[in-house]
């Protein structure tokens, strides 16, 4: 039986460009900035729900967990309940995940949550679009000594109690079989998340969000090990050139391709 835990995180709306703060050490947000669930986490939530639709008898529970303040995380937790997860958990912290808590500490908190919820499958986004580090799945696997199937494009439970995962790779696709307990990180192609139904959202508002205190002792924290020195905006260069005919266009194109290849 699968007891699925989906860690979810609140990030700036993917269409918005984050503003770099004056100190150039991070980002600043205004009260009007729209935040939403990290899109890859949304895919993980959807996949857990799809698994339940397809393999009803295999799923014992689906829980989501967010780290941070209730104010910041209320919406993404409620939406998850409305979409159909069994339970939404908040680990209240003074600092907000992603900004003030290091990724290692975030994973250590998740490790405790997994222990307390007795989860045996973690479905999580392959990366958070605010930090793009893409290492949470790996660190969590290391801490728990659990196997990790990353960048999942298809997830299928097999008859022998294991899970078959098709993974996106640079050159194509690889298929792996993973034993449980384990961790799967989700890629874009896995599914398209559903919308939150208004009627279900109204019901979800009446359901509780569980609070789970997790304390990390000082010896477990790694604060200060990584310091952001500078954040800069990417420079986009656009060049425009006029060509006189198709032949010149083709030769310019092949020139550009070979010079880009050489540079890479």
């Amino acid at each position: 039986m699968l007891r699925i835990l989906v860690p979810i995180k609140r990030v700036l709306d993917p269409q918005l460009l984050p503003r770099i703060n004056a100190a150039k050490k991070g980002f600043e947000f205004s009260k009007n900035d729209k935040f939403s669930i990290n899109p890859f986490d949304d895919i993980a939530v959807e996949e857990s729900l799809l698994l339940r639709t397809k393999y009803k008898d295999l799923i014992e529970s689906i829980q989501v967990v967010a780290i941070g303040s209730m104010e910041n995380n209320k919406d993404i937790l409620r939406n998850s309940i409305a979409k159909g997860v069994d339970k939404a958990i908040l680990v209240p912290t003074k600092e907000s995940a992603g900004d003030d808590i290091s990724i290692l500490n975030e994973c250590k908190i998740l490790e405790k949550v997994i222990e307390k919820t007795n989860s045996n499958l973690v479905l999580m986004g392959k990366q958070d679009i605010d930090k793009d580090s893409g290492i949470k799945g790996g660190i969590l696997g290391g801490l728990l000594n659990w196997p990790l199937a990353s960048n999942a494009a298809k997830v299928t439970p097999s008859d022998n109690g294991k899970i078959v995962v098709e993974r996106e790779t640079d050159n194509g696709q690889s298929t792996v079989e993973m034993s449980l307990p384990g961790i799967i990180t989700t890629d874009l192609r896995l599914n398209v998340p559903r919308y939150v139904s208004l009627s279900k959202l109204m019901k979800a508002k009446k359901k509780p969000i569980d609070s789970l205190e997790v304390a990390l002792s000082d010896e477990h924290t790694d604060n200060g090990k990584i310091e952001i020195l500078q954040v800069e905006e990417a420079i986009h260069e656009r060049k425009c050139e006029k060509v006189k005919d198709v032949d010149e266009l083709l030769s310019k194109l092949s020139e550009t391709i070979s010079s880009t290849k050489a540079a890479a």
Partner: peptide
């Protein structure tokens, strides 16, 4: 607005875009 519209049975169901991609 949406909740009262639902309570008054003016709408059957609905959804609010959670982010700009959903809005689009």
């Amino acid at each position: 607005f949406l909740e009262t519209a639902m309570e008054n049975e003016l709408i059957e169901d609905g959804t609010i875009a959670q982010d700009s991609n959903e809005a689009h």
